[in-house]
């Protein structure tokens, strides 16, 4: 049985690579894996401070900074997963030149394994949020049942982009350099720090089609339970992402023979 050209053994290999790159990510620092938790928390604190206290941002219908902070983290936590996943994917071929040049395996598992690194900040964010919600007295929400589906859609989307970005960056190193800026642009142009109502109503309709917004919004719906999970949008996004992933893989497989010549 093979899924998109991957055999069972390839998935096993992917898992092993994932573990390996996970260890590499935090190896050599004194606190090691603790940074996986500390880094997101640091960013949450920073953005809560800047938007909640300095800019006094409030949500419509709620006036506490706490409510805004939770709302922000619901959108920004999953975004951290995007950044982590795509940055890691862009470097996945060049950074593993040793493996690419010396082992016989399907190199397309590298960007996918790298993309899955995004699961770590995502897990940290979600656990943090659920902890905070539990402490502030709100219990189990049935919307949480949709969480695995949202995660699945997000990572199909990320894998599709990750594979393509990995292929591009290997040939055009410049892409790896501009990627953080592109991600920053995507972050600020998507209603993650501000509600969608804050942008002009004409743009709101367009923004509803932004996959990053759909994902961020879905996480909010799932984690806050205050609105319906946009299942149709997610389903459409999933199918589009699968199509894009198939396309990215076909591009990747066409050019991967050149990897030894450029890394």
């Amino acid at each position: 049985m093979s899924i998109m050209g991957f055999e069972r053994a390839d998935f096993r290999f992917m898992l092993n690579l994932w573990r390996m790159s996970l260890a590499d990510r935090y190896l050599g620092s004194a606190l090691g894996g603790a940074w996986a938790v500390l880094n997101p928390l640091l960013m949450f604190a920073l953005f809560t401070f800047v938007f909640g206290f300095v800019f006094q941002a409030r949500l419509p219908g709620a006036d506490s900074t706490m409510a805004y902070s939770i709302w922000l983290i619901c959108g920004y936590g999953p975004w951290l997963a995007n950044t982590e996943a795509l940055t890691a994917a862009s470097n996945s071929i060049i950074g593993n030149a040793g493996l690419v040049k010396n082992m016989s395996f399907k190199t397309e598992v590298l960007p996918i394994a790298a993309t899955l690194l995004g699961l770590i900040p995502l897990a940290v964010s979600i656990i943090f949020l659920l902890g905070v919600q539990l402490l502030s007295g709100s219990g189990w929400k049935w919307s949480l049942a949709w969480l695995p589906f949202v995660v699945f859609v997000q990572f199909t989307f990320l894998a599709a982009f990750g594979v393509m970005i990995a292929a591009i960056t290997t040939f055009v190193r410049d892409f790896g350099i501009v990627l953080p800026n592109l991600l920053m642009i995507a972050l600020f142009s998507t209603p993650i720090f501000y509600p969608i109502e804050a942008i002009p109503s004409v743009a709101q309709g367009v923004m509803a089609l932004n996959p990053i917004y759909i994902i961020a919004n879905s996480y909010r719906a799932v984690l806050l339970g205050d609105q319906f999970v946009p299942l149709v949008n997610l389903l459409v996004l999933e199918f589009l992402s699968l199509g894009l992933l198939a396309f990215s893989l076909s591009v990747f497989r066409r050019v991967k023979g050149y990897f030894p010549a450029v890394i």
């Binding site: 260890a23 590499d24 030149a97 040793g98 016989s104």
Partner: peptide, 16 residues
């Protein structure tokens, strides 16, 4: 099955 003994190392850096 093939065992390749060339350019050894390459298991992700020297920090391990």
């Amino acid at each position: 099955p093939v065992s390749a003994l060339f350019e050894l190392g390459g298991m992700g850096g020297l920090l391990i």
